[in-house]
Design a protein around this nucleic acid. Structure first.
Length: 294
DNA sequence: GAGCCTCGAGATCT
DNA sequence: CTCGAGGCTC
């Protein structure tokens, strides 16, 4: 896919014949465009029908932004799911991502299917989310191409949310696993002033924006790659991952010859078979714990 | 021999 | 998506 028009790019009419010659395919010109919902500049790709707005608070995508922000893999705000978010936005209580940190218990209790107890619990959950590690905040922003894994790598290298404001695409591409698409996406995201406003407000609300002190530099599991499959007796998949990462190990989702250990629980999937096939060391929960404890 | 392109493998993605 | 290997150019 070829980027045809973006704020500051060369005039599309000039690059059209060049791109067509190179790709051998006819392409459509994307005229300069602004988001119909919020007038932010939008980025469009050849062949892509949908607009992609850079503004995280754009009315057209606010609910989705919030759902992802509060989700388990991001800020993990228990009790703030799609149903609650839908009401908050419809009632105008939340117009920007950061508004959730100004909600009062009273406002929450006024929602459908939300009693005093649930409202109090949700306030606590929102408060707790302020102390999440930096990589969760970076994930929660919903930056295109930036998910949990790359957010973690970026946060380790950059150290604080302020560090993201001034980092250049070239600097980003020097970080392992960060290529041109992620670098450009990050730069575009932090160039949008409405995103910056929201981040500043999140900071003012007390959301953690600094990476924790780096884990054991030479963790016991440093350089080792793990893959989890099946259900472990006591540990959840997330717990096991956290424990491995805390010791310097890496957790990946598919088995390859670069995998050092496959941790298999009950009812393992095809990863188990592949581990056997490739002759990769297998661990059960006890084996993993033994390795973690040294 | 640096630079650019293509392609396949492996991993990730709002 | 990112990366590295292999092919091609200058």
């Amino acid at each position: 896919m070829v980027l045809l028009h973006k704020a500051g790019d060369i005039i599309p009419e000039i690059i059209k014949p060049l791109v067509e010659h190179r790709t051998g395919k006819e392409i459509e010109i994307c005229p300069p465009a602004t988001c119909p919902a919020c007038q932010s500049l939008v980025v469009r790709f050849a062949g892509e029908v949908a607009y992609r707005c850079e503004n995280i608070n754009c009315p057209a995508r606010l609910k989705e932004s919030l759902i992802f922000f509060a989700s388990r893999d991001a800020m993990d705000i228990d009790g703030m799911g799609p149903a609650v978010i839908d009401q908050l936005v419809e009632r105008g209580l939340v117009n920007k991502l950061d508004d959730i940190y100004s909600l009062t218990e009273e406002q929450l209790a006024s929602l459908e299917r939300m009693g005093a107890k649930s409202a109090a619990n949700l306030i606590t959950a929102i408060e707790n989310s302020k102390s999440r590690p930096l990589h969760r905040l970076v994930t929660a922003l919903g930056i295109r191409f930036i998910g949990g894994k790359s957010a973690r790598i970026l946060s380790e290298h950059i150290g604080s949310i302020d560090g993201f404001f001034k980092v250049t695409a070239d600097e980003l591409m020097g970080i392992p696993e960060i290529g041109p698409r992620m670098a450009e996406s990050l730069v575009a995201f932090f160039a949008e002033s409405r995103n910056m406003d929201t981040i500043q407000r999140l900071k003012q609300a007390g959301v953690n924006s600094i990476a924790e002190v780096r884990g054991p530099q030479n963790g016991r599991l440093s350089g080792k790659t793990f893959v989890l499959t099946g259900t472990l007796p006591e540990l959840s998949r997330d717990q096991a991952s956290e424990m491995i990462i805390a010791q310097g190990g890496r957790v990946s989702s598919s088995v390859s010859k670069k995998t050092d250990y496959v941790v298999a629980g009950a009812e393992p999937g095809s990863k188990y078979d592949k581990a056997i096939q490739l002759g990769i060391a297998l661990l059960d929960q006890d084996g993993l714990l033994e390795l973690l404890e040294g």
